[in-house]
Amino acid sequence: MSQNDNLDLKPVPGERLKKFLRRSDVLQSTLFGLIITGVFIILGGKYYPEWMPAAMSTDMKAIVKLMTVFTWISAPVCGVVLGIALYSFLNRHKGDTPPPDGPATRTNGPVVLLWSVVTSALALVAVLYGLTEQNSTSLASARNAEDAMVVNVIGSQWAWSFDYPEYGISSHELMLPIDRPVSFKVVSVDVNHSFWPVQLGVKVDANKLAETLADTTPTKLGEFDVKCAELCGLYHAYMETTGEVMTEEDFNSWVSTQDGDRNTK
C-alpha cells in the first residue's frame, strides 16, 4: 500500500493512517470486503447445513458444524482478497493504449509482515480447530470401544455385506440400534473400496487382508445410504446399499428374523 503522496508531508504515523483510511479506494475496497465477508458468512451458515444430509450420528453433527465454522473463518479472507480485486476491477483504465504508469511501489515491509502473520494465525486456528475436533472424536471412540457393537464390513466387487459377530448373522443391509456405539471393522476381499455410510459421517477404505477401523454412535432414527467412495471397477457406481438406525426393540426383532447360518470358509 503506497503512501507516496503524503510520505513527506505527514510525518506523524497516526495522521498518515487517518488520511489513508479516508481515501476513497480504501473506503470502497473495505465496503466491498465487508459485503463479501457477510455474504460468505451467510452462505456458509445457511447452505452447507442445507446441502449436507441430515446428521444421524455424533460424527456427522461435528462435520456439519466444522464446515460452517471453516466458512466463517475464511469469509474475511475472501472479503480482503475480493474487496481489493473488485475495486481494482471496477476502477479500470479504458482505451486501446496502455494506461499511464501507477506509483512505483516495490514493496511495503509492514504490510508483507502483517499479511504473513495474519495468514499464519488463520492457518494455526484452522490447524488447532481441526486437531481438537479430531482428538475429541478419537477420545470418544476410545471411550466407546468397550460397549461398542462390532460390525465386520466386507467390501467385494460390487456389493457390501455386513457380519454381526455378536449375533452370528450377516446381511446386505446395515441395521444399527440407536445410541449404541458401533465399531466398523472394514476389509475388502479384492480391490480397494471405501466404506461410506453417508449420513453417519464415517468413511474408511477397505483393503485386502488389512482391517481398518471406524466408529460412531448413531443418534437419529431413519434410513441412511451406504456407498463406495473409491473407484473399484465396473460397477463401482452401483456398489451401494441402504442401512437403518432402529430402536433397540426393532433391532432385536430384526436380528431374530435373520437366519444364523452364516457361510464361513
Binding site: 479506494d25 480485486a85 481494482s88 476491477f89 476502477n91 499511464p100 501507477g102 511495503n108 492457518a123
Partner: peptide, 21 residues
C-alpha cells in the same frame, strides 16, 4: 496456506493503487 497467501499478496499488492488495463 501461508506461502499461498503470499502469492495473493503479491498480486493484490500489484493491483493496489493501479488502474488496470
Amino acid at each position: 496456506s501461508v506461502p499461498t497467501g503470499l502469492i495473493f499478496l503479491v498480486i493484490l499488492g500489484t493491483l493496489w493503487n493501479g488502474k488496470p488495463w
